[in-house]
Design a binder for these strands. Structure first.
Length: 475
RNA sequence: GCCCCCAUCGUCUAGUGGCCUAGGAUCUCGCGUUCUCAGCGCGAAGACCGGGGUUCGAGUCCCCGUGGGGGUACCA
């Protein structure tokens, strides 16, 4: 079978962690089987469409490395790929179902003709009143221009069974699904109808999505049946919930894909983390490349229970991917963030830049993290004041600083390197008879204003002779 | 209200009746490496939601309860 999957977002805003999850799996799955991945825009709700959202959405997908074979901006044999441009198709599909006796026009006002149950306050269901109309009358009234909606002639009794690849067979009583609306009075399709018409037309073979869509599935299955086409494979995976377990909303950490991008997060790492929610590698690996994910992905390994978004683990995955990068790659990734930080760090280049990145690389989950660690090179005034005071109070420390300053001053320029500086410090230690902590800490304090941080020699290399000597002289 | 789905360490998960005195990852803590921090290595702590069944045997199967998620729209 030629696998075809799709991602069908609404252009209502940025792509979020929640909605991207389905895109990731569908894409991985299509690639795994050399199939096609289709992007379709569900923009039938004109009021909710947001200007520019479509372009951003595609941009976010592209950044993630999720590429599509057919979509709004790619010609394909099953287009157009915007629902707003497919209106004729939905109407035609409605007519077809009517002609086949699977649907019927309904002339009731909205809310009219519904059954209710005094014993069950929340109960509401369309009675099927217009279903009883004779074909002749229905046609007469439609032809007369009377407003109507098209409803599905849903099964009256029995149970509707749907096969879900993740959770097995699920069934719902037929009475719980009424003759829902397919085409609105203004001719626009409802969500469930548009989805199925498109999935049929676009020959979608696997519908993989979050468990939130599970309750739509029986309705959609009924529609596939009404069209007399085979149902696609349905698979409902875990949905992403907020860290607290509630719905993933902006407040609860549902960040836009674009935010991660802006922070310099590695797209491959985000892809990796997302795939880990509700899916597990048969070999138990947790850090996987794009290609490894494609090779490993399968519906069988999808989980049924919802997963909580865990920013901590995301960071860890990010750091793991970062660790696999070469120094050059990190330098390149970090450069824009350094530039934005302004001088002097914005002007680092060559060996100095490399040294700085080498000093910081184990602390990065994303390129943008680099700015949080710049204080190691450019300490705040308060930090230095406090640190300097501590050094001045300590006779041994002052001795060290003096010796180190002398050693540094004598260091040829070409030896102003991490190795050369380290040697100079060691030499100063020998001269003063002070070693270990007593030797390094005063230097670190005087230079960085902090007790902890990356290799002191590296920091000295980065800040340069002039600045380094100036700081030591302040003691 | 009614319908559907879900339920293993705080979190992500492995586990398809005996291999489970429940494994891995993250997080936390300790030790080691090291001038310190980060990283890395090693170790510790930490879970089968509750109650009934079925079975020689249940984390694994069934039922009920509880909790969570979703639906119940001429929203998507």
């Amino acid at each position: 079978m030629n696998v075809r999957t799709r991602f069908a977002p609404s252009p209502t805003g940025r792509l979020h962690l929640g909605n991207i999850r389905a895109a990731v799996f569908n894409w991985l799955f299509a690639r795994r089987h050399d199939g096609a991945f289709v992007v379709r825009l569900e923009d039938t709700d004109v009021d909710r469409n947001v200007e520019g959202a479509e372009a951003q959405l595609l941009e976010d997908l592209a950044w993630l490395g999720v590429d599509w074979d057919e979509g709004p901006d790619v010609e394909g044999p099953h287009g157009p790929y915007r629902q707003s441009e497919r209106m004729k198709l939905y109407r035609a599909a409605g007519e077809k179902l009517w002609a086949a006796g699977q649907a019927y026009p309904c002339f009731c006002e909205e809310g009219e003709g519904e059954e209710s149950d005094p014993a069950d306050p929340g109960f509401r269901r369309y009675s099927g009143r217009c279903r009883a109309l004779s074909p002749a009358e229905a046609h007469r009234r439609v032809d007369a221009g009377e407003p109507y909606v098209m409803r599905l002639a849903a099964p009256l009794q029995g149970t509707i069974e749907v096969m879900d690849e993740v959770r097995g067979a699920i069934s719902v009583p037929a009475e719980d699904i009424d003759d829902f609306v397919l085409l609105r009075a203004d001719g626009r399709p409802t969500y469930n109808f548009a989805v199925v018409v498109d999935d049929v037309d676009m020959k979608i073979t696997h519908v993989v999505r979050g468990s939130g869509h599970l309750s739509n599935t029986p309705k959609q299955a009924l529609l596939f049946d009404a069209f007399a086409v085979p149902r696609p494979v349905f698979a409902h995976h875990a949905q992403i919930l907020s860290p607290e377990g509630g719905k993933l909303s902006k407040r609860s950490g549902a960040r836009a894909v674009a935010d991660y991008r802006a922070e310099g997060f590695l797209p491959e790492a985000l892809l990796n983390y997302l795939s880990l929610l509700g899916w597990s590698d048969p070999e138990g690996r947790e850090v996987l490349t794009r290609d490894e994910l494609i090779a490993a992905v399968s519906i069988e390994r999808l989980g049924a229970s919802d997963a909580l978004y865990d920013p901590e683990k995301l960071r860890w995955v990010g750091s793991q991917h970062m660790a696999r990068l070469s120094l050059d790659e990190i330098v390149a990734g970090v450069r824009p963030f350094l530039r934005a930080a302004g001088p002097p760090v914005g002007e680092w280049s060559g060996e100095v830049l490399e040294s700085a990145v080498e000093a910081l690389r184990t602390r990065l989950s994303a390129f943008g993290d680099v700015v949080e660690h710049l204080h190691y090179f450019a300490p705040s005034d308060e930090a230095r004041t406090v640190a300097l005071a501590a050094v001045r109070q300590d006779g041994s420390a002052r001795t060290v600083i003096g010796a180190v300053a002398v050693a540094f001053a004598a260091l040829p320029d070409r030896e102003w390197t991490p190795a050369g500086l380290k040697a100079a410090i060691v030499q100063a230690g020998r001269d003063t008879g002070i070693r270990g902590k007593g030797l390094y800490t005063p230097v670190r304090l005087a230079v960085t204003g902090q007790e902890h941080g990356p290799d002191v020699a590296r920091i000295l290399h980065v800040i340069g002779r002039e600045e380094a000597l100036a700081r030591l002289a302040e003691v």
